[in-house]
Write a protein that binds this DNA or RNA. Structure first.
Length: 338
DNA sequence: TTCATTTGACCTTA
DNA sequence: TAAGGTCAAATGAA
């Protein structure tokens, strides 16, 4: 089959799964029957299997993971026993290790009126290690790595690329998860109310993090957070498919604790937190599109703007509150841009 | 003095 | 071989 045909087919399957997950997502807020939930679970599972088969990995039920600890290779194919033999030596090589790291992208819109040069802080301390002019891009791409790379062997990196079309939009690509603990000694940084609330709900995220499906999906996750493209969605809590009935999973999302072990973010977008009021939702209101292109390194086609409603993706759409950039937020804080 | 940024060179990958 | 990604020496700021 032609590669583009494969891609189209993959996209279609992905959309099917996305819609099924949306449906399940909605049903969860209306206490669906166990039968309904099971049925949806099977539908989603079927899409998953089809996608896995299409991608040639043959590994069913697990989206490509990319974390170094994962037993799934970056290209989405499962690491069979023979490939497992090579795991140790693979991970011993930093470059390969990096290849296996989860990657996702956020689009951050900043208020140009503030003379901002880049997106705001993401509560991690980054050290710029390079800048490159990218072919066809108006603006250079900046490369950052975690300040604690040496001290704490933290291999998280990020790339910041200013949008050609809209200079107020920065595409921030995160690679790898933070292994460091840097929140106690991090430079105190002002936080928007949204962020503060997000933080307080981190236990909700932690709960979600326990879900193996999340680890599966997050590997090739791409989160577009362009503030301008927010779709209204009825409130509901977010959930990846699992065999746990919705009512039970609800409890996974509700407990809100003030003690946020930020490291559990693992470098993932803080936007995953729900600023849900009264703890009723893990995610609500607006839509973020999580695009899982699955096994292949298809990040290039993942770069479509979040505005599309037809995102051809094996990811899901789920609702969380929009995160607006506070016009008064001091973006010139250390660590992001100079 | 320490830490962050800049930037040219080098490495990797497609 | 070109483009993207990373390294590391030089430089600057605090």
């Amino acid at each position: 089959m032609w590669s583009w045909e494969m891609q189209v087919l993959s996209d279609e399957l992905a959309q099917g799964m996305e819609k099924a997950m949306q449906l399940r997502f909605h049903l969860c807020s209306t206490s669906p029957s166990e039968a309904e939930d099971l049925l949806l679970q099977r539908i989603i599972s079927t899409f998953e299997k089809a996608l896995c088969i299409l991608k040639g990995g043959g590994h069913v039920g697990v989206a490509p993971a990319a974390a170094p600890e994962s037993s799934i290779s970056a290209d989405g194919s499962s690491r069979s026993d023979d490939t497992n033999k090579n795991l140790c030596q693979d991970f011993g090589e930093a470059s390969k290790k990096r290849k296996l790291q989860p990657t996702w992208t956020e689009q951050v819109k900043v208020n140009s009126g503030n003379g901002l040069e880049g997106p705001g802080d993401d509560k991690y301390r980054w050290r710029k290690y390079g800048q490159k002019d990218i072919l066809g891009a108006k603006y250079p791409r900046s490369y950052y790595r975690c300040t604690y790379r040496q001290g704490q062997n933290c291999w998280a990196t990020k790339q910041v690329q200013r949008s050609d079309e809209d200079p107020t939009i920065f595409e921030v690509t995160y690679k790898g998860t933070h292994a460091c603990k840097q929140f106690n000694d991090a430079v105190p940084q002002p936080e928007s109310p949204e962020k503060q609330e997000l933080k307080s709900n981190s236990s909700c995220y932690d709960q979600l993090e326990q879900n193996p499906m999340i680890s599966d999906f997050r590997a090739n996750l791409r989160v577009d957070t362009a503030v301008s493209d927010i779709q209204e969605m009825p409130p509901a809590y977010f959930s990846f498919p699992s065999t746990i009935p919705c009512q039970e999973r609800e409890n996974e999302c509700y407990p809100i604790s003030a003690q946020a072990d930020d490291n559990h973010l693992g470098g993932y977008s803080p936007l995953f937190y729900s600023p849900a009021t009264s703890g009723s939702n893990c995610f609500s209101s607006a839509t973020y599109q999580m695009r899982d292109y699955g096994a292949n390194d298809n990040t290039d086609i993942m770069s479509a703007n979040a505005s599309t409603n037809n995102s051809p993706i094996g990811g899901i759409e789920f609702s969380i509150d929009p995160v607006h950039i506070d016009p008064d937020f001091p973006f010139n804080i250390p660590g992001f841009f100079t």
